[in-house]
Computed example of a mutant assay.
Amino acid sequence: MTTKSAPLVSRFVSALALTAIILVTGCSSHNAAPVSSRSAPPSDRISVHQVESGETLYSIAWRYDLDFRKLARANGIRDPFVISRGQLLLLDTSKISNTAAKTVNKSVAKTKIAAPNVKSRVAANPPAVTKNLANKPKSTSSPVVYGTNWQWKWPINGKIVESYSLPKLHKGIKIKSVSRAAVRSSAPGIVVYAGEGLRGYGKLVIIKHSEILLSAYAYNDQIMVREGQRVRQTDIISRLGSDGTMYFEIRKDGYPVDPEAYLK
């Protein structure tokens, strides 16, 4: 390198350095909004649910924190609340007066396999129910279902490891018991759901105790009751797995309430 070219190189390097400083300064002076202040992208509220195999009106209402009675009225569904796979249910219960007699039905062509089976079950059920009611006229007023002479009892013996807290999205309580512990119904009623179709609940049992009160027993390893079965208080309804942990909820008018305020 010659003596004359050295100053040129030096000036070129200095210019590059100055440009870099300007760019860095400009970037650092830009005030980006913190993550906490950025608005979340809009999310669509689910307004329609397509019934899947194994679901009941009660389990769907439970999934969306709805009162099963309002969900039924919003879709024009009457007791015994029979629904079909592929059927569409409106989830907006705030406009019950406008949608009480309406049910959105899915095209039968899109459920070619399930539709015939569902129809045959629905068609076969009414005569059976009528016959049972005729033979046992007192069954609908049995105190086992709607009796008031009972108090809530703990479904298992154990220690609460997670308490009810709606701000933390804890809609029930977690109870730690022993491996393979027997789970008992906390109150008399009728099993309205028994399966594992609700995400996050594992094998789940939901029992209806009155028109406003239901209870749920989750994280089971073995379900020992079936839908429609009448259970007495403290009847064994399921067994836990080796972990011995169960999740328990009570809902009143469709809303989760603190189980500890009810259990004795």
Rank of each mutant, 00 (worst) to 15 (best):
G244R: 10
H170T: 05
R184I: 01
H49G: 00
R232V: 00
V145M: 15
K106N: 12
L169F: 10
A74V: 10
L8P: 01
N31W: 12
Q50R: 14
A216L: 04
V257L: 00
L90I: 07
H30G: 06
E52Y: 01
Y262Q: 06
M224W: 06
Q151Y: 05
Y217R: 10
K95L: 13
P41W: 10
A134D: 09
A216Y: 07
T130Y: 05
A181E: 06
G86F: 02
H30C: 03
L90M: 13
L91D: 12
G244I: 11
W152I: 04
I250D: 00
V118I: 06
W152N: 01
A261L: 15
I212D: 13
A100P: 01
L198Y: 01
Q233F: 11
P259M: 05
N105I: 08
G189H: 13
S29P: 01
R73A: 15
S94A: 13
E211I: 05
W62M: 09
S84V: 04
S36M: 02
E249P: 07
V178N: 07
I156P: 01
C27L: 14
A17C: 07
G241C: 02
S242W: 04
K106H: 14
A194R: 03
I173L: 04
D235E: 09
V205N: 08
D92F: 09
A74G: 12
I156E: 02
A15V: 14
E55Q: 12
L214T: 15
Q229W: 12
S29Y: 15
G195C: 06
L8G: 00
V145Y: 15
Y201M: 11
K131H: 10
R226F: 13
G202D: 14
V13G: 02
G197F: 05
G254N: 01
L213H: 12
S185L: 02
F68D: 00
K252N: 08
S142E: 12
P256C: 09
S37I: 07
I160P: 05
I77C: 02
A72R: 03
K168E: 10
I160H: 04
I237E: 06
S177V: 07
G26Y: 08
A6T: 08
R69Y: 02
K138E: 15
V129N: 05
G195E: 11
V145T: 13
Q151F: 10
F68K: 02
D221P: 00
D221Q: 14
I237H: 02
S10T: 15
I223C: 05
K208A: 09
S242E: 13
I83Y: 10
A6E: 10
W152F: 15
L71T: 01
Y164D: 04
K70N: 00
